[in-house]
């Protein structure tokens, strides 16, 4: 039996890890308004999470259980099996250095390991370790964040403060060997003081998924994505 582990990603940091197929990955917010900007790559490290295909196939403008996270090449990367929150933003991307400018300059020399780095900087740093780079940046999920959509002519967007609290969770079930890349930098629409919350990651073996699992019966589209991954691993 593969062993379980957990890792605490501090606020404002970035992290990446390969996770084998058939694992549960639970993210737990360690404070209010945590944000985990997450990218997901498939077993060959070229195929990657495709937010437009994920949302249009499942008729949702956000990520929530029991959606299936789908790749550029039409495979299921992971199922969203559980969450204490019913909305995880996937329409507003990750933050850039520009979003941290309001806090003034920051560097290692100045602030040692408390220096402020953007999600983009952290994600690119992690991607580069795996032979990837800026060209591989794609739409992310901002777990724990809600960006509300107004019913107005332009579908205006507003970050909801207080959406996530310490202890909120989301659990993914990996459907193939994936690379998880995440940043805990503040959401780019945040106007709060700089105090990003950390995120705990727990990885454990998943029980076999039943054919009537909530994701498999959610929509015909979700089931077909899972079937395509089954074929890719047959």
């Amino acid at each position: 039996m593969p062993s379980s582990y957990h890792h605490e990603v501090p606020g404002g940091a970035a992290w990446s890890a390969p996770v084998r197929a058939g694992r549960l990955v639970t993210l737990t917010a360690q404070g209010a308004d945590a944000n985990a900007a997450l990218l997901l790559f498939g077993a060959d490290r070229l195929d990657r999470l495709n937010i437009p295909d994920t949302v249009k196939s499942q008729m949702s403008a956000c990520v929530r259980p029991p959606m299936v996270l789908m790749s550029d090449r039409g495979l299921a990367l992971a199922r969203v099996v559980d969450s204490t929150l019913d909305w995880h933003d996937c329409l507003t991307g990750f933050g850039h250095d520009r979003h941290l400018r309001r806090f003034g300059p920051s560097s290692y020399a100045q602030h040692r390991n408390e220096w402020r780095r953007s999600a983009r900087t952290g994600l690119v740093s992690e991607l580069t370790k795996h032979g990837l780079g800026p060209a591989d940046l794609h739409g992310c999920v901002n777990f724990f964040s809600k960006v509300a959509i107004a019913d107005d002519p332009r579908a205006s967007l507003t970050l909801v403060t207080g959406h996530a609290a310490a202890g909120d969770t989301v659990t993914l079930r990996t459907e193939q060997d994936v690379l998880v890349v995440l940043s805990t930098a503040p959401h780019p629409l945040s106007t709060a003081d700089y105090a990003p919350a950390g995120v705990r990651v727990d990885v454990s073996p998943a029980p076999p998924a039943d054919a009537d699992d909530a994701s498999a019966v959610f929509r015909a589209e979700s089931a077909r994505a899972l079937e395509m991954t089954r074929r890719a691993q047959a």
Binding site: N50, I51, D53, K56, G74, E221
Partner: peptide, 15 residues
């Protein structure tokens, strides 16, 4: 936000 169609996403969406 709707992305492009691909052969692969067509299979997911339409069979």
């Amino acid at each position: 936000v709707g992305g492009a169609c691909s052969q692969e996403s067509n299979v997911i969406r339409y069979g």
